[in-house]
Design a protein around this nucleic acid. Structure first.
Lengths: 357, 357
DNA sequence: CTGAAAGCGCTTACAG
DNA sequence: CTGAAAGCGCTTACAG
């Protein structure tokens, strides 16, 4: 065997070997109806023999479409985004599209660069969740300017006219608190996030709505913002549990905070869920392994990824094929689900909660 | 504004606008020394004005190289692989390469398809961690046959001649057990994985080596295979703790198993780390939030991702540039680090363990 | 320093 | 049903 690099086989090689024109080879490989079955069989056999691989670069250039989706997320290795990416990948695979992944690392500058990269790569569609630093959206306009489809998800700019996919934070909180009430808890404390972020504002509003709808009265000091981590949650829970009228349940907008509450309860020898109910948010992996296991709100992140990609595949592509018109921007909301585990199951104890996959 | 799709600007558009040849525009934009600074400035200004974006597809086709890396992992949304991908992405970004991600979903068939896809995409290099189903490597040979570089990581076929990057499982276990011994634990039990997998065989050997080196004697029944989850670990630990001569420490090859041991210890009112020492493996996120926090072996997955990509960027590319020779296959081992937390810190209690990022 | 020409490997009207 | 020709947007010897 000679050592020199063997060049990849091209349709021309197949054409020469079979004794037909390259254009016919192309049509045969693409299974166009204008080629005889006989010839297709011949061509396919020769292609296999020559170890021919289709050259996407060339085809993309010619076609002007790349069958590639680009996705930009703040962090690839945060469980929420990793799950979303897994969902997107699955849907892309089903639709025979490639996936190029960029991470902004929460930097506006890197996000702009990522957009630039994806435009250069000629992707057909960009799926993006904005970085924390992102305040302007000129770079998103660039995407549109280059006739590339755009779908925003989770961290979105509502003011920018694109398809959008978000969680139902408010409704999810509402349901979480409703669940606690259904279990007989009456004095439900709330540990929120920084109130200036829409996400946390919504989660708080859902709590307030559920309390309001139930007719329960909650003291002001049961509602505390900006408690996302374990340690502050533990400290805050201890303060509340000291009170004469202490909470009998906690709804926290973070699972880490729920963990802190759990520790505080243990310190006070309060039994969970008998004396104290707890439900967190995000359905982190550890909620399944604590003792007791922690109830939580699942954002169904993998499903969210699938839905995001499907906005392109089902909605945009179909529209383009059928009427060629640009459809108005979609606003989709992914329904969260309440994962009931031990920490909030005072009645009708369940085994084997639904798993989020 | 007219509604028709505006075409992307090309180098020809710039050429016409500036009044020079397209080839000169290309050279100017690529900053080749053969073009005057004056002209470069002119061209760049016009490019910006026309909102020109480089077309990677065209350039790749012409150059025959895509500046794109392909990566195939079993699961995108498993923390270990998500971290590895984050590391790979970071290194690709630093080296101005794109990243195409495929997941085999532990299916051999999908892995073969992913390889096919990446060859078609003309990637310059494939980074792969094999699926559980993968027993043959003809598809890897295909990669080589198409002059594409190949680096295997973590789940590798040692027999296949490619660059390889793996963890130091055996050495890591050795160090973990050594750590327990240094803390004064003497009767150290081992909960392993399925013994037929090399990974777990290595971890077990490391344990045995450390015990052997220390001169300690361990009863046979302290060594139990195939305990990876929480519940079996809890049950097994309970059985051991019942004994007259019970273990005073547990090394488990999974953090979930460590969690089960922790629960068993709590049941027996054994204090951790005073009465019982525990160290797990993988440094899962939850090890930081349990009470007490769990010591664990960190595989430094993000670093592993960076190193994997760097095999291509530092080693392969450099070799190609300097002497053009194909270098022999590299075998790299990533050193794990012992993350000492509360569950094994009987002496010299530390605060703030090193974080794995 | 600038330009004309060829060509990367496909696909797609168009002709026959 | 098959083929000849043009061209997608670049890059790169080569000439001047």
């Amino acid at each position: 065997m000679p050592k020199e690099k063997k060049k990849r086989a091209t349709i021309r090689d197949i054409a020469d070997a079979v004794g037909i024109a390259p254009s016919s080879v192309s049509k045969a490989l693409n299974d166009l109806p204008t080629i005889s079955e006989n010839m297709k069989t011949l061509v396919r056999a020769k292609a296999r023999e020559l170890n021919y691989k289709h050259n996407s670069n060339a085809a993309n250039l010619r076609r002007g479409t790349s069958r590639t989706i680009g996705v930009i997320v703040p962090k690839i290795n945060v469980a929420f985004f990793a799950d979303i990416i897994a969902g997107i990948e699955q849907t892309c695979f089903e639709n025979d599209h490639r996936l190029i992944i960029c991470q902004s690392d929460e930097s506006f500058e890197r996000e702009v660069q990522a957009v630039e990269t994806l435009i250069q790569q000629n992707v057909d569609c960009v799926l993006i969740s904005l970085s924390q630093e992102t305040k302007t959206t000129d770079h998103l306009k660039e995407i549109i300017n280059h006739n590339i489809q755009l779908v925003q998800f989770d961290r979105v700019d509502h003011a920018f006219g694109s398809h959008i996919l978000v969680n139902d934070n408010q409704e999810a909180s509402f349901k979480a608190v409703q669940h606690l009430i259904s279990q007989g808890y009456k004095k439900i404390a709330f540990f929120g996030g920084p109130d200036y972020l829409p996400l946390y504002k919504e989660r708080k509003q859902g709590y307030l709505d559920a309390i309001g709808a139930s007719g329960l009265t909650i003291p002001y000091n049961f509602i505390i913002d900006n408690i996302l981590k374990k340690e502050p949650a533990e400290a805050a829970a201890i303060e509340l549990l000291k009170l004469k009228t202490a909470p009998d349940a906690f709804f926290t907008v973070s699972d880490y905070a729920a963990l802190g509450v759990l520790k505080a309860a243990r310190l006070y020898n309060k039994k969970v869920p008998e004396d104290i109910g707890i439900i967190g948010f995000s359905n982190e992996a550890f909620t399944e392994v604590t003792s007791p296991t922690l109830s939580s709100v699942s954002q169904q992140s993998k499903k969210m990824g699938r839905e995001t990609a499907n906005v392109y595949f089902n909605h945009v592509l179909n529209q383009q094929h059928t009427d060629g018109k640009v459809s108005p921007s979609l606003k989709l909301v992914i329904e969260s689900s309440i994962i009931v585990r031990e920490s909030s199951s005072r009645k009708n104890k369940r085994k084997g909660p639904k798993k989020d996959s």
